[in-house]
Simulated scan of single mutants.
Amino acid sequence: MNDFPGPDTDLDSVFGAVHLGYLVAHSRRLTEWRRFGELAIGMHTDALDEDTLRFRLDDHACRFLIRRGHAEDVTALGWQIDDHETFERILARVADRGVPIEEGTAEDTALRGVQRLWRFPGPKGIATEIFTTPMTTSEPLRMLGSGWVTGEAGMGHVAIVSREPESMHGYYRTLFDSRLSDFIDENISGLKMKIRFLRVNERHHSIAIANVRGVKLDPLRTRVQHVNIQSATLDDMLAAYGRVTELGFRMAWSVGQHTNDRELSFYCVTPSGFELEVGWNPIVVTPEREAAWEATTYQGISIWGHHTVSETVLDKLARVRAAAGRLRTPEITVPELTGGMSR
């Protein structure tokens, strides 16, 4: 139910009725993904067949869908829409701008655990998928912690590095009436960037966009920089940190606390190379806070912690080689949905 006030000039706002529902990734490393998701992070695992893994965080049948493939990356983001009227309104925004829309097949909906699915292009080549009704299950969760925070806030957030940040911001504003939560100015490994944080519901942000405009090549091989999920307790988050380390998965950033949403978290590297942030207790933008919210710029990502964990020489060489292969490659945008915000 959308309890948030819409912008005064837009009575048709869909803000508050949109929630990150699932992600789809393709990987050849399903054995490592199972070890990572089940034994390190502690999520519920369902192996549908030798080519398909699903991870659950709650009663939704699917939150992470990992399919055998060569991308080693996130290929689609699934967004849950509260009701059919809002669903049709979003589809109309896409269709009216001439963006191609594809209906999901029966196999697509079954794998993702949803009843209805439509797909269309998204920034950086990540498909946007929207659905109304998730399939839920009463099967008990087999997890190593007490649970994960989802509900009205969705399953978490996704962070993307972009050389076209205004286009990406415009895309999510046009599509979901996203609102700007705040900015962070940061210098990471000599790379100065301004990160903008967009919310589409009570979660402080469902999309983070790191601006690297002017950089000739994308500093990351993967389309997403990280995906975030939220632990139910601090003990759950710290236990996952210990398991990731003990099982030999690479830690990217140690435990720390963010300046803007105050979330405590750590970042580790998934078997596909993008990062997973496991966090706890971020700010929730309630309707009361929403009414008075003003975007602020923070200096630095963290109040404390989040120290980088050293890469090996081979890791650095692989990153440089992958980046060189993308030199002068234009970033994929969806200009019809930028709302005039592209540069």
Results as ranks from 00 to 15, higher is better:
residue 16 G to V: 02
residue 28 R to I: 08
residue 201 N to Y: 03
residue 207 I to E: 01
residue 93 R to I: 02
residue 287 P to H: 04
residue 251 M to T: 12
residue 305 G to F: 12
residue 92 A to P: 00
residue 280 W to D: 02
residue 83 D to H: 05
residue 139 E to D: 13
residue 141 L to N: 12
residue 227 V to D: 00
residue 18 V to L: 03
residue 281 N to L: 04
residue 84 H to Q: 14
residue 333 T to D: 04
residue 62 C to S: 05
residue 10 D to A: 15
residue 165 P to I: 05
residue 315 D to M: 12
residue 202 E to R: 08
residue 179 R to A: 05
residue 121 P to M: 03
residue 227 V to Y: 00
residue 18 V to R: 03
residue 191 L to K: 06
residue 83 D to I: 04
residue 3 D to W: 08
residue 291 A to N: 09
residue 300 G to P: 10
residue 182 D to I: 03
residue 81 I to F: 01
residue 63 R to E: 06
residue 25 A to V: 11
residue 189 S to T: 10
residue 143 M to Q: 15
residue 1 M to L: 08
residue 226 H to K: 06
residue 118 W to C: 06
residue 252 A to H: 06
residue 148 W to T: 00
residue 287 P to N: 04
residue 95 A to K: 09
residue 234 L to N: 06
residue 39 L to I: 08
residue 139 E to N: 11
residue 59 D to Q: 11
residue 209 I to G: 03
residue 178 S to N: 01
residue 327 L to M: 15
residue 301 I to T: 15
residue 35 R to E: 09
residue 335 P to H: 13
residue 28 R to S: 12
residue 142 R to V: 15
residue 171 Y to W: 13
residue 48 L to W: 14
residue 25 A to W: 02
residue 274 F to V: 08
residue 119 R to W: 04
residue 206 S to D: 06
residue 254 S to Q: 08
residue 190 G to W: 03
residue 323 A to T: 14
residue 45 T to I: 12
residue 35 R to Q: 10
residue 191 L to C: 10
residue 188 I to H: 12
residue 279 G to S: 15
residue 295 A to H: 04
residue 301 I to C: 09
residue 14 V to A: 05
residue 135 M to F: 14
residue 103 E to T: 09
residue 50 E to A: 13
residue 80 Q to I: 07
residue 148 W to C: 02
residue 301 I to F: 15
residue 342 S to N: 13
residue 272 S to R: 01
residue 157 H to L: 04
residue 12 D to Y: 14
residue 311 E to G: 06
residue 93 R to F: 02
residue 143 M to T: 14
residue 206 S to Q: 05
residue 196 R to L: 10
residue 233 T to I: 12
residue 180 L to W: 08
residue 95 A to L: 09
residue 60 H to E: 11
residue 166 E to N: 15
residue 189 S to M: 13
residue 97 R to H: 10
residue 65 L to I: 05
residue 324 A to C: 13
residue 299 Q to M: 14
residue 261 D to C: 03
residue 168 M to F: 07
residue 37 G to N: 07
residue 110 A to F: 11
residue 341 M to N: 07
residue 303 I to E: 07
residue 61 A to K: 04
residue 132 T to H: 12
residue 188 I to K: 11
residue 280 W to R: 00
residue 130 I to A: 01
residue 140 P to N: 13
residue 282 P to Q: 00
residue 84 H to F: 12
residue 40 A to P: 03
residue 19 H to S: 13
residue 33 W to V: 10
residue 280 W to K: 00
residue 326 R to Y: 08
residue 277 E to H: 06
